[in-house]
C-alpha cells in the first residue's frame, strides 16, 4: 500500500508539472496575448504599458515568469491579472459549489446508469431494453447545456417549480441548497446516465455468458443473487474507472456550461470567465486542480478495483 501511495504521489507531481508548464506555454504563444496591454487599459500610453510589464514581471524570460508564478501558486499568493484577486481564495470559495454539483450529479448518474444498464441487459431485445436504449441515446446526444436551458425555462421560469439559477450554501439553508441544485444535477447527470447504462449493458451481457455465471445458476442461486453478487460486481469495474475520472473532471470545473446556465459560480464558471479574459493564473491553478483530482480519484478507483475483484492487487 505504501509503495502504491508513493508511486501515485510521484505521478501526481509529474502530471501537475507537465500540465502547468503546458498551460503556461500555451498562453505565452497566443498572438497579441500580452497581458500588460490588457492590464494597462485601452487608453494607456506606450510608456505606461512598459511600466506595467516591468511591474508584473512580464519583461522577464518565460522560464523566470513560470518559476515565479509557480512559487506564488504554492505559497497561495497568486493573483489574477484581470481583477487582481487571490486566485486560491476564489477557488476555495467556489469549490463547495462545484463539489456539491459534481457529487450530487455523480451519485445520480452512477445509480441510474447502473439501474438502467442492468435493466437493459436483463431484458435485452425486449421492450424495456429498447425504451431504455432510446432514452440513453437521447441523453448522450442532447447537449447538456441545451437541456439545462430548456429545463430552466419550463420548470423554473414558466412553471415556477424551481428557483431560476443561483446557489445557496448547504450550511445556510439545506432545503434551498437542494432545490437550487436539483435541475443542475439532473441536467448534468442525464448525459452520463446514457453513457454508463450503455457501457454497463454491454459488460453485463458479456458477463452473463461467462462460465462462472452458469455455475452460479447451476448451484441453484436465486436470479437476484446471481445478478447482484456475480454479474454486477464483475461488470462494474469499467464503470468505477469511468466514474472516478468523470467525477475528477467535474471537481476540476468540467461542468462549466451547467454552472454558467444555472449561474452557480463554481470553479467551472470561474474557469470559463478566466479563459474569456485570457487570465493565465486562474486557468493555471484550475488545470492543476483538475490534474490533482484526476490522479487522486484514479488512485481511489484502483483501491475500489481491489475491493471489487480480489484478483487485482494494488502493487
Amino acid at each position: 500500500m505504501g509503495t502504491f501511495v508513493v508511486r501515485r504521489l510521484a505521478s501526481m507531481l509529474a502530471v501537475m508539472f507537465a500540465i502547468s508548464l503546458l498551460t503556461f506555454l500555451i498562453f505565452q504563444a497566443i498572438p497579441n496575448g500580452d497581458p500588460a496591454l490588457r492590464l494597462a487599459g485601452r487608453l494607456a500610453t506606450a510608456q505606461q504599458i512598459e511600466d506595467v510589464r516591468k511591474q508584473w514581471g512580464f519583461d522577464k524570460p518565460i522560464y523566470v515568469q513560470y518559476v515565479k508564478t509557480m512559487e506564488k501558486v504554492f505559497n497561495g499568493e497568486v493573483i489574477s491579472y484581470s481583477q487582481q484577486q487571490n486566485v486560491e481564495s476564489e477557488i476555495w470559495r467556489d469549490l463547495p459549489v462545484t463539489v456539491s454539483l459534481a457529487l450530487g450529479a455523480g451519485v445520480l448518474f452512477l445509480l441510474f446508469g447502473i439501474l438502467f444498464g442492468l435493466l437493459s441487459a436483463v431484458h435485452a431485445g425486449r421492450f424495456t431494453d429498447r425504451a431504455l436504449t432510446m432514452l440513453a441515446m437521447f441523453g448522450i446526444s442532447m447537449p447538456a447545456f441545451f437541456l439545462a436551458a430548456v429545463m430552466e425555462y419550463y420548470l423554473s421560469y414558466k412553471a415556477g417549480i424551481f428557483p431560476i439559477g443561483g446557489y445557496v450554501s448547504l450550511a445556510s439553508d439545506p432545503w434551498e441548497w437542494f432545490t437550487h441544485l436539483v435541475l443542475p444535477w439532473v441536467s448534468l447527470a442525464i448525459l452520463y446516465v446514457g453513457i454508463y447504462s450503455r457501457v454497463l449493458r454491454s459488460n453485463t451481457l458479456d458477463t452473463l455468458g461467462e462460465d462462472f455465471v452458469r455455475t452460479a445458476r447451476a448451484k441453484g442461486l436465486s436470479e437476484r443473487r446471481v445478478l447482484v453478487r456475480h454479474v454486477l460486481r464483475n461488470s462494474l469495474i469499467p464503470i468505477v474507472t469511468l466514474w472516478g475520472l468523470d467525477l475528477a473532471a467535474l471537481f476540476g470545473g468540467g461542468a462549466l456550461l451547467i454552472e454558467t446556465v444555472f449561474n452557480l459560480h463554481g470553479v467551472g464558471q470561474y474557469a470559463a470567465e478566466s479563459i474569456g479574459r485570457l487570465d493565465v493564473p486562474p486557468i493555471l491553478v484550475i488545470t492543476m486542480l483538475t490534474a490533482f483530482f484526476v490522479v487522486a480519484l484514479s488512485a481511489l478507483t484502483d483501491i475500489v478495483y481491489a475491493l471489487l475483484d480480489p484478483r487485482i492487487r494494488l502493487n
Binding site: 436551458a149 430552466e152 425555462y153 423554473s156 421560469y157 415556477g160 431560476i164 439559477g165 443561483g166 454558467t260 446556465v261 444555472f262 449561474n263 459560480h265 464558471q269 470567465e273
Partner: peptide, 14 residues
Amino acid sequence: IDTNTQSEAQQVLN
C-alpha cells in the same frame, strides 16, 4: 452577478 442573461431576464420578467 448572473452571467446567463437568459435567466437574468427571466428573473426580472417574473
